[in-house]
Design a protein around this nucleic acid. Structure first.
Lengths: 418, 418
DNA sequence: CAAAATAAATTCACTCAATGAAGTAAGTAT
DNA sequence: ATACTTACTTCATTGAGTGAATTTATTTTG
């Protein structure tokens, strides 16, 4: 049996191509043009005949669509990298995405530090920047100013103009309605019900898409990480809070009414520990950073610095150096981590669960076989793969860029741009 | 604020028509012919121009498709029942489904009693039958024999031949893969991994579809109950076990890999009460009938009869007549009921949750405002409507017939049947 | 009551995307 | 060199749907 837990530290280590490796679903009706574009992108390169077979369309149709996409500058023919000379017949001509056909910006906003990247149409990072954010909360104007600074910096570094940017994706914590581009509430904002996407879009004259942090991590996994090639997977994030993202049929599931997937606030104990949301028994209250630090503060001489990240590092160090109290805190948290994973399996039965978030840096003991523990709490014994990712800070911005890429491919492939 | 809990006892009390009142989803690509058929069925009757507007297709297209469907005997023109004489212009001609265009059979199998119905294409019950099932578990052959008996009886009563049946839907408890028609495990069967759909299909020479009981209750709500008109709703069933069904985008969601939605076995307490599944802390272990009877047996002088239903009735009677132990048992169960509902809201954020199952007969105190209690445990304060349904036994078979109708409409509308 | 107005339904030339068969291109096997 | 194989292109045809013009059926207005 293979190990269930893998540690890895950079996105885009999977095969070739980017974007979901599988089509969205059988019944996702999109233009054939977009399907061809996405198939080529998802595979890095693909011949016309491969594409025709994969999409179950005629070879003639692919020829025509490929010609249009080439004319539009979106794809091109390349030297086939993996030319197999053992096969006879006319060799296929590989098609590949033209990386510079369009560009997007991905922005992650956070309490301590914002980060942003500018990528080409296959997600290659062409420029990146960051901005220390001092205020924990700010007005919409201030946030928009910070966003403008990030964008200006990216354009400056890359030498591009804003007309070359096809879309901007922004991700951050909060209750965000992606469809309407509205922020119902966010820890970053003093105001509520802010139509942020509209505001930034008008100011930059570029389409803007926003989503919450759990969803953009999930998109990062779908586009560049282990989620590629999986039709159904869940992402569980553990750090300051506990969140989750879900991909069903190769498509990000955002909950029935745009909310939902609040795993951190599902109840795992009646009248249990007090959560920061004010209720009792939330999973978060046993598992999130703030919960652990609260416990640690009562027992250990740490967490007096006020900075959560430092406190967590101290706690992890104490645990590794053998402090029994610190170890007990992590042990207990891990029990609830397993419980959360088990509940995901029971409810969604995904192919894969990806554990993500800062916690993965110092918490999961390598020798605990997570899947074994989860199996003890689930009925489905064909239990899914579980993988832990300790990404560097770039995941967030990359996920935000995937948000922008999703939208951009949509209207770039809609008709031949002259 | 309106009351959250409603009690009602028969399906098909909603407006007119049957089947989902909304199309499956934006991206559900199905033939326009099927869309027209389903629009007319979903609305009871609809004019060509209404249909064209609703489906965003041209009037000419509807004329053609309607002509085909009429020629195929699937729909017909009717006297407009709600003729508005105040509007001028040529009055619309209402189209309606021809009920006798095809027929299906829906079967529910259970430990104590199987039931089956024969319906027309709009779900009207034309014949019904039942069969006492003595053995708790039986071989596949025996089960197939029982099914054959039910079908033969329905045909006999209705005076139809099996060639007139377009599809058969069968629902029962167990781990059932609807896609492949395989029963991985069922409390009714001694064997596992049974390709039941194939077996019954070959014997009857009719397409057969199977699904688990939670899903067929959900289908019953989607086709004939309060789920009509809701794009996203959940059904939570409480009786011997705890189950759930989910409709997303007007389509039954069966979990990523055909399993999932095992709400009864999500963990709500680490190392908690022992569940019949052998694990600890399952929601079911605090809420299902068997759990309550186990508690009651320790305290009260009931549940010695062995028959669960009788024991539950005794417990309910004791509670209503003021027995404090019995009341305490129900009170505790209701806390977990609320917890289950709250977790559904947090994860799926549906428009509506329908509470179903035998428990609704005697458990929910009418004066407890469920929604208020659920709101105390959820973040989303735009909390969804909650409705309790105490159906008679016919729901199951009707849900199974909806399963058959779903499939039958699919191939009936595929091309003009000569 | 006839004419005008209005809306539903039908008809039909046209569009557009895709098919599928025939033909061309570009390589390997013998 | 010839046969074979596979990739790609071309193009007449298909089929579903559009949209404008027309017909039909009714109410309102003069």
């Amino acid at each position: 049996m293979s190990r269930a837990i893998l540690h890895s530290d950079s996105l885009s280590r999977s095969t070739s191509g980017c974007g979901p490796a599988l089509p969205e679903s059988d019944f996702a009706k999109k233009s054939t043009r977009k399907q061809v574009f996405e198939y080529v992108r998802g595979h890095g390169s693909a011949s016309r005949s491969d594409t025709a077979r994969a999409l179950s369309i005629s070879a003639g149709a692919v020829t025509g669509i490929a010609a249009e996409l080439i004319a539009a500058g979106l794809i091109r023919e390349i030297e086939d990298p993996k030319r197999e000379t053992t096969v006879r017949g006319r060799p296929p001509v590989a098609l590949a995405i033209v990386p510079d056909s369009f560009h997007v910006i991905g922005i992650h906003l956070a309490n301590e530090r914002h980060s942003a990247i500018l990528t080409d149409s296959i997600g290659t990072v062409l420029a990146e920047t960051a901005l220390d954010a001092h205020a924990p909360k700010r007005s919409v104007e201030e946030l928009v100013d910070e966003i403008s600074l990030l964008i200006a910096d990216l354009l400056n570094v890359s030498g591009m103009t804003k007309t070359q940017i096809s879309a901007i994706g922004i991700g951050f914590a909060g209750l965000i309605d992606h469809t309407t581009g509205t922020v119902s509430w966010s820890p970053l904002l003093t105001e509520t019900d802010v139509k942020l996407a509209n505001i930034v879009s008008e100011q930059t004259d570029t389409p803007v898409f926003i989503d919450n942090d759990a969803n953009i991590v999930t998109l990062a996994e779908l586009w560049f990480g282990d989620g590629r090639g999986k039709s159904n997977f869940a992402v569980m994030t553990v750090e300051h809070g506990v969140g989750m993202g879900l991909v069903l049929n190769n498509r990000l599931f955002r909950g029935a009414r745009g909310m939902g997937l609040e795993l951190g606030h599902t109840k795992v104990q009646i009248g249990g520990a007090l959560c920061r949301c004010g209720q009792r028994g939330c999973l978060e209250a046993y598992l999130a950073d703030y919960a652990l630090i609260k416990e640690a503060a009562a027992v250990l001489d740490i967490a007096k610095l006020g900075v959560e990240k430092t406190a967590m590092e101290q706690l992890a160090t104490a645990s590794k150096s053998g402090d029994p109290s610190a170890q007990a805190i992590f042990d207990n948290a891990n029990k609830y981590l397993v419980l959360g994973l088990a509940n995901i399996v029971q409810l969604f039965d995904p192919d894969l669960i990806i554990l993500s978030g800062e916690r993965m840096r110092y918490s999961i003991p390598k020798d605990v076989h997570l899947r074994t523990e989860v199996n003890k709490l689930t009925l489905n014994k064909n239990a899914c793969e579980i993988v832990a990712h300790a990404w560097d800070g770039s995941v967030w911005a990359r996920g935000a860029s995937a948000l922008a890429l999703t939208a951009a491919t949509d209207y770039v492939t809609r008709e031949s741009r002259q």
